[in-house]
Design a protein around this nucleic acid. Structure first.
Lengths: 333, 333
DNA sequence: TTGAAAGCGCTAACAT
DNA sequence: ATGTTAGCGCTTTCAA
């Protein structure tokens, strides 16, 4: 920057200002400086800037898996909105393990992010401590934690499933099974399972038709395998609720390979409104989790908190509202 | 760090050493220091460390889309291998636009990454300049560029498609169509289309059965729409090659909705070995692009280049070898 | 194994 | 609108 200053015949401070958007530099001077910088091949050093200004422009975002279209949608929306405020995402993924989340949090805080976004409301105690003491906004998403660390943008996975069960029961379904949500790592999956079981109980229905799908990520293959076991153990099941659309699609293929008609012989529903659920034959009933909305709302919240015009204020809980999408796979004959 | 030093009764320099892995600090002193740091809630400041040591531990990685399982697999493997060398990914995505790629590159270089990974070999001239002058290893992936900027880890999309066409022709297919690859943004898709057309030409077959799928990301829905047009314009087509498994699956569903049997009435093949291609009914023939291998190999290359034991050396081209996976959707009756 | 001095490249704060 | 001074929190370098 010193070199650029010399080349342009100004002080380093003026060069610094010329590289800021709102700084007070005459248009003429700025042009001269940018030209000099370009000729010298100068590249602004954000590291030094961050240290001196104590602002990094980073927002840490931690998701369970990078290879999940729902979380990808959230991150994409988050990233797009944040970039309008000159904020950049520092992405990490936990492989559905809170110990790994703790490690990531501890690592990322060293980079001095200006806010941190988490997926879910279950964390190690040390992670909670680190976050509470970090002095930056913490936003938990994709859940409504009982004991929030800071802000929340999300929904109750259990309540979403209750709505689905209520609807299926209203449609006349009685023998209802569930696939997945057995592993502790996938806390949202476990919440969905709990929601289904408790809703079934409330209707006085059988709550034992539960099939494990193993450790997350629960994908299509696991869904197919679990459906095979469902059909063996509970062959008279009328509708199978799956922890996600991916497992629901896998379950659907298992039925197709066995010559079972969906929904005529057995109905299937999923969760997440992945693209496949609206394209497959039959299309799959699901719940839209508002992935992108979660990202957008979170970004807006962060922009507001980081701009720092307001005096912190207290932690907010912003609910989003999943939507039931009834499609061919659970249509009553 | 000064506070920690005082609390532990040592100099800041010793604290600094205690936080390094290999530094020479007596076990006793280190323990004392870590305890003091923990009690004070001290969090190491990577920003200052980066500035002084001129090492950030960042590797910039730019992919077309975060919501693509192939690129996600590459990034996951890259990230996992890099973290063993204390390197962290700074992820950006271009939405398949090289102008956006240029903007991202320029932004990311300010953060002083120690290497930069790109997807594809097509970039703006300014992007090429920025990268050439950045003084860090540049690795282009998922392609074999004619004019590489630095290192390359990838394969020829056109050659991969030639193999597929050759195989289909050997299986007796003659009227072969292609869906996608029409938009300039998806350069790998365009390469695949070129590869198909040129291979068809070499066999003396009809090269006009090309259906546009629009701007990327080409997903299931676009595949279904394109298949509808293929069936209208070229109803006697024997096999349809799709730019990816997602569009291939979409194409498959369009056939199913029309009552066409795959592969008996029409065969379909895809690209990328996405999970769906091995689960759908029928399973979809495809080409495995070695997504994870690209990430792993790239990470190993970077680790070697960044450790800096060697004196730079010249740019390397490391080919990976896509594999034909023939499945039900193109099985000859 | 530990410490002291200097400075990485930028910008906050103040002055003009 | 521009310049000067000081220093962000570490680590390199040298010394003991």
């Amino acid at each position: 920057m010193k070199d650029v200053a010399e080349a342009a015949g100004v002080s380093p401070m003026t060069v610094s200002r010329a590289f800021k958007r709102d700084a007070s530099v005459s248009a003429e001077t700025r042009e001269k400086i940018l030209k000099a910088a370009d000729e010298l091949g100068y590249v602004f050093d954000a590291t030094a800037s961050n240290l001196r200004s104590q602002r990094t422009g980073f927002v840490a975002a931690i998701i369970p898996s990078i290879n999940n279209a729902n979380f990808a949608d959230t991150v994409r929306a988050l990233s797009a909105c944040l970039s309008e405020h000159d904020l950049q995402i520092l992405l990490g993924y936990t492989d559905y393990q809170i110990e790994e989340e703790e490690r990531l949090i501890s690592q990322m805080l060293r980079r001095r992010p200006e806010a941190i976004v988490l997926t879910g409301g279950k964390h190690t105690e040390r992670a909670r401590d680190l976050l509470s003491n970090a002095g930056i906004p913490v936003i938990e998403t994709w859940d409504l934690p009982e004991r929030p660390i800071g802000h929340v943008v999300g929904f109750s996975n259990a309540a979403a499933m209750k709505d689905m069960v209520d609807r299926l029961v209203a449609d006349g379904y009685r023998r209802i099974g569930f696939i997945g949500g057995d592993d502790k790592g996938d806390t949202r999956g476990a919440d969905r399972r709990r929601g289904v079981v408790s809703a079934l109980g409330a209707h006085g229905l059988d709550t034992t038709r539960l099939i494990a799908a193993g450790a997350p990520p629960i994908s299509m293959r696991e869904g197919a395998r679990a459906m095979a076991r469902m059909l063996e153990h509970y062959p008279d099941t009328e509708v199978v609720i799956c922890v996600s659309d991916l497992s629901a699609y896998g379950a659907l293929t298992e039925c197709q390979r066995r010559g079972l008609r969906v929904p005529d012989d057995i109905a299937i529903v999923g969760f997440g409104n992945y693209e496949i659920s609206d394209v497959s034959v039959p299309t799959i009933s699901t719940i839209d989790a508002c992935s992108a909305e979660i990202g957008r709302v979170t970004a807006e919240l962060i922009a507001e908190l980081v701009d720092g015009a307001k005096p912190a204020g207290k932690a907010r809980v912003i609910p989003v509202h999943p939507k039931l999408l009834l499609r061919e796979s659970s249509a009553r004959r």
